[in-house]
Structures are given as structure tokens and as C-alpha cells.
Design a protein around this nucleic acid. Structure first.
Lengths: 340, 340
DNA sequence: AGCCAATGTGTTACCGGTAACATGCCGAGA
DNA sequence: TCTCGGCATGTTACCGGTAACACATTGGCT
């Protein structure tokens, strides 16, 4: 065994004694204080290694009033977007020497409770990943006085916000479809209380209107492939393309259409949003808009830490999405004999 | 605003003074000590409410040498299984008043580093979610003296382990296929260093052997739908069923077969493993084996906390998987004119 | 030479809790 | 009535660090 069994944890004063310095000098070595003689530093480091010394983070937190911990409140972790963003945040935070404590809003957990329960464990800053309309207000209300960043599609004048450019992404999707000649484009939207869903829907509407086409009524889904399936079953015959607000719904739509004998993309083109890992193997492989959640997570941590250090940071930052063209979209074609 | 701006954090002694008791009494109220007069408790609670008092967790951790924090090391969070397990763990831990700090093993992070970096922040116990063969040894080596639980398909005599019953799940899949009359069953396995993958493969082999069928060589994938796709392209013509070690690979296989003009399930049956949320809308909807990762997470936390409290807990616990029959499997049928 | 700033280190107090032991009070049993 | 044990509470020390300030030494500049 390399580790001596049950190493009796050493503390800063024991290190100090063995190194022949005061405990304060050891503390300075730990914190990379500039004015430490190189020889002293070496000696202390040596002793620390010998004793297998690890600073006690609770003690540091208590004395310094800073925990090096970020709290994250995530609405709907189970969804691909929020979940991926959280993972990316965790990685980025870890790289910066910070710890993440996250709490999901899913269940019987109100934003207020979430802030409470996170604040209880001690936080340096707060990050809210929430695509919901009202969450920001709820956050404001439960405000904890902590530096805060919100990952949300809508800019908020008085807060730091970051997001993937939802409108830009929706533009990409709509332009792709209209470039292929489609005009009769149905939108299967996400839940009405999701800002991402709203942004995508607005762009769809605006884009069509600008083309002189009257948009049909949106179909509202709930992000699940099930809801996409339902929308697919109910798809009017004269629609030539569907812009689904996410990939699972696109999958469900394709499933339903296929069952109905409607071919994708020959009869109807379908485009998704997200680019989930499996999208390339859907049948047909899904054309979609990729969101770079890793970049989003990194950006969030950067922004938050900069804010903590008092640096001037932009109140709003955006990540650019990317169009991924695959097999579920094609040029518009007449659909054979229309019924009735 | 309901919260007074920048509430000056109260500490235990201020509460004590205002309540006319010693700070120790307040501490006892916080910790639900039995011998506190009801009247006193009420008075203290009242003052705590007034001051909006929150115990400082760093101070508690320092004084009590217990952090109420669990460390989790996750290998391959990006995979559905480990990722879901982690989420479930977080929820269960939160419900028990514990905090989770997790670290992903994915990148340039060795198990040793992971233990180090988790131990550095202070932990009550450690949980390792790792499907890899060698990780347990690595953990043993980097052992931190902490109570430890491993989520792994293989029991380890000297450690606490929990898992979804992999062999049982694979049995379910194989029995389903053979009940439908299939004998020529190909297995598309996960990476060789994954214990889950091994267990599924072994059962596949044993099951066929017991039936007097010589198993063909396994095809080894890497869990991704891409690798499934590759396997599907190379699928021998006389195979009538494929047991894919997870759902994304099953998806890729179906994609490839469909491209080749092979119909699923008419020509070839495909069964997956996991039951990812979208599996029911794959084309055709996927027959698969569901793993209840939420139950697994809950079980893990329960076990770990029981261990912490010194309770006697079984060294090995299993969650039962469930067969989900959908449209990607059917009775065996001759495949029409065989080429050559 | 004398002064001052920078450098390197030490002393002391304090962060906000919990542990361990001490104390006063009260009721039950001898 | 006295004693003893349990209840309710208080006192003191300590957990392992950091902050703030003090102090000694050194070297450059006037």
C-alpha cells in the first residue's frame, strides 16, 4: 500500500513546527503569497508532502468567508439542454478550482426553496439555468444578495445573462427550410412558458410573415418525443415542412408520419433543434441546429468568476448555434394527389 | 421586497443573547437535542426567524468534523446509465440533507486525481460509479479511508456494491428473443473494459450455448449509435436477431439495416438495453430492457448513509430490470431467397 | 549616514459553530 | 429528610484555518 493506513490528518501548526516556521508562514505558502523566501517555501512544501498535509476546506471557508463553491439551480435537468449545460458548468468550475452544488427545480421544489437550501450550505455565487418565463422574477424575489448569473434566452437589463442565440438558431432553421422552397411550414413548439420555445416560435412566425405567408396555428408540445408523435399524427396534409423546437419532438413527428405512410423528407421535411448525440442516426438522419452547451457552461463560469473578482464583464453574452444538414429535409415537392 | 436588503448575517451568539440563553442552548435547538424545554425552544426558534438566522455550514463542518457531503466519482457521465445514476444520487442525497460533489473521470482525470481532488474539499463518504474493469483497483489504491460504495455490476467481497442486475436483464432479453424462435442471435457488445458489457455478453453466450447453438463472434461497439451503425452495415445475412448492449447502438443498427433494405422486425429483430426516453419512438419503437436508475441512486444513498451511521448493511444489493416489449422484435421468419 | 519602502516572518485575535464537562434544580426512592 | 439521577442549561476550550497588524532586516536613494 502506498498510503499509510489511516493517516492522522496533519494541521497547519504541525507543519509549521516541523518546518521551523510559524503557522502563518505555512498559510502563506498554501495561498501563494508573494513575499515568502524561496528556501522557506521549499522547506514548508517538503514537510507538507511528508505529512501528506491537506488544508481543511471548512476551516478556510470559515476564516475567509468564501467557500469557492457555486450554487446552480437547474430547471428541468432531465431535458438535454439544461442537463448538458449543468455538466459543462461543473467541468468548467472544477477546472477553476471551484465546486458546484446544484439543485433541480423539477419536483416540489420552488425557486425560493432552492435558493434557501443552496444558501444554507454557503455559496460564493449563484447560477440559474432556467428556460422558464417566471423563474427570473422568482429569483429576484428570493434574492440572496449573491452575485448571480442567469442562463436564459432573454436578456435582463439588470442581471448577468448568457445563452445560446435562440433567435439566431431559429433563423438558421427557417432559412434552410425556405431555401429549399418550403412555405407551408408548421411549427411544433415547446411549452409556452419556456423562453427558448417562445424565441423559436417568434422567429418562425416573423420569418414566414416576412415572406408574405400566413403562419398556421402552432402546435404546442412538451419537448418529449411523445408530444412530437401526437403532433405528427395530427399533421395537416398540405404541410410540406415541420420545424420542431427540439430533436426528440422531431423524432416523434417522424415516427408518426412514417406510420401514416408519409415519407420524410420526400413528402415532408422535418428539422429539429439541439443536435442530440443520436440525431444522426434517426431515420432519416435529422437535420437540426446544434447548440454548444459546453461552450455555454464555460462562458457561464468565466462570467461568474470575473464578476466575483470585480472585473467588468458584459451583462449579456451569446453563443452562436450551428446548422447541421442531414437527411430529414429536402426540396419541396408536390405531394401527389391531394385528398378531397 | 420581502427580504431586507443585505441582511447582516446573524450568528449563534447573537441569537443566544436576544433569546436570553447561552449560545450552547441555541446550538442544541439547531440540532434537535432532546433535553431542551419546549418554551425555550420556541423562544429560540422565534428569534432565529426574526434574525433570519442560518447556521454557517463551514463552522459546523469544522467543529463537528463532518461535512454532510458525499463525493461521487463518475466514469463516463455522458453515457445514459452513469449520468442518470448520478442525477438520482443527487436527488436522494439532497432529500437526506446531504450535498453531492461529483467529478467526472472522462478526461485527463485519473481515479487517483479524482479521489485527491474530492478529498481536498472534505467528504463524509465516497461513491464510485464506474463500469470499468480496473477502476476498482485504482480506487483501492488511492483509498482515502472514507466509507465507500461502488456502483458496479460485479460484486466485490470486501466492499459495498450496488447495481442493476445486469445478468438478469440480459437473461430477459435473450429469453424474449429465443421465445420468439430466434437462434441466430448476434450480440453487439459494449467496450470490453466495461463490466456491464461483459455481463451482458456472457449471458448472451451462455444462453445460446445452453440451447446448443454456437454463438457467433461478438461485435464490439463503444455504446454510440455510430458504432451500432457500423455493426449494422456489417451484419451477416443469416442473422435473424440482434441483441444490442444498449439503446443507441440498437438505433444505429436499425439505421444501417434500414439503409440496406433489411426490415426490422420482419427480417431481423433488434433488442436494446436501457430504455432511454426516446426509445419508444425509434422506428420501429424499440424493444429493450429498462434499468431503473432512480431506484439505483436511492439505494446507493441509503446504503452509504446507513454505513455512515454504523448500521449493518448488505454488502451487495441489486435492482431488478424490466423487459419492455415494443415493435423492434418479432417472431423469426425465413428471410426470403438467400443470396449465393 | 540616515531614512524609508519593500521584504520576510511572527503574534494575536477571530471566524461560527460543537464537544465535554460542570452546574443547578427537581422529583423519586431509601 | 436525604440522596441520587436525570433534565435543562451554562462555561470553557477547541476545530483549522485567515486577517490584521507588528516587527526585524535589507537595500536603494538622497
Amino acid at each position: 500500500m502506498s498510503t499509510p493506513a489511516s493517516a492522522p490528518k496533519a494541521n497547519i501548526r504541525q507543519v509549521a513546527t516541523l518546518a521551523g516556521v510559524s503557522h502563518m508562514t505555512v498559510s502563506r505558502v498554501i495561498n501563494d503569497h508573494p513575499s515568502i523566501a524561496p528556501a522557506t517555501r521549499e522547506r514548508v512544501l517538503e514537510v507538507m508532502r511528508e505529512l501528506n498535509y491537506r488544508p481543511n476546506s471548512a476551516a478556510r471557508a470559515l476564516a475567509s468567508r468564501t467557500t469557492r463553491r457555486l450554487g446552480v439551480i437547474v430547471d428541468s435537468v432531465v431535458e438535454y439542454g439544461p442537463g448538458s449545460t449543468l455538466r459543462a458548468l461543473e467541468d468548467a468550475a472544477h477546472d477553476a478550482g471551484y465546486t458546484i452544488s446544484s439543485i433541480a427545480l423539477d419536483r416540489a421544489m420552488t425557486p425560493h426553496d432552492a435558493v434557501e437550501s443552496l444558501a444554507a450550505i454557503g455559496l460564493d455565487a449563484l447560477c440559474l439555468i432556467t428556460p422558464r418565463v417566471d423563474s427570473i422574477d422568482l429569483l429576484r424575489e428570493g434574492s440572496s444578495g449573491l452575485p448571480t448569473l442567469v442562463v436564459t434566452p432573454e436578456p435582463e437589463p439588470d442581471m448577468f445573462t448568457v445563452s445560446v442565440d435562440q433567435r439566431g438558431g431559429a433563423e438558421l432553421a427557417m432559412r434552410h427550410l425556405t431555401d429549399l422552397g418550403h412555405r407551408d411550414i408548421l411549427h411544433v413548439a415547446g411549452p409556452v412558458d419556456w423562453l427558448d420555445a417562445r424565441a423559436r416560435e417568434e422567429v418562425w412566425r416573423e420569418h414566414l410573415t416576412a415572406l408574405g405567408v400566413t403562419p398556421r396555428p402552432v402546435v404546442v408540445g412538451d419537448w418529449t418525443s411523445d408530444s412530437g408523435y401526437a403532433a405528427g399524427l395530427a399533421l395537416p396534409d398540405d404541410v410540406t415542412a415541420v420545424f420542431a423546437a427540439n430533436d426528440p419532438m422531431a423524432l416523434g413527428i417522424i415516427h408518426a408520419l412514417t406510420e401514416r405512410g408519409v415519407r420524410v423528407p420526400d413528402d415532408v421535411s422535418v428539422i429539429g433543434f439541439d443536435d442530440v448525440p443520436d440525431a444522426r442516426h434517426f431515420l432519416p438522419p435529422l437535420t437540426t441546429v446544434r447548440q454548444d452547451f459546453r461552450a455555454l457552461g464555460r462562458l457561464s463560469v468565466e462570467t461568474l468568476l470575473a464578476e466575483l473578482e470585480g472585473a467588468a464583464v458584459p451583462h449579456r453574452a451569446l453563443i452562436a448555434p450551428e446548422l447541421i444538414v442531414r437527411g430529414s429535409t429536402g426540396r419541396v415537392r408536390s405531394r401527389g394527389p391531394e385528398p378531397s
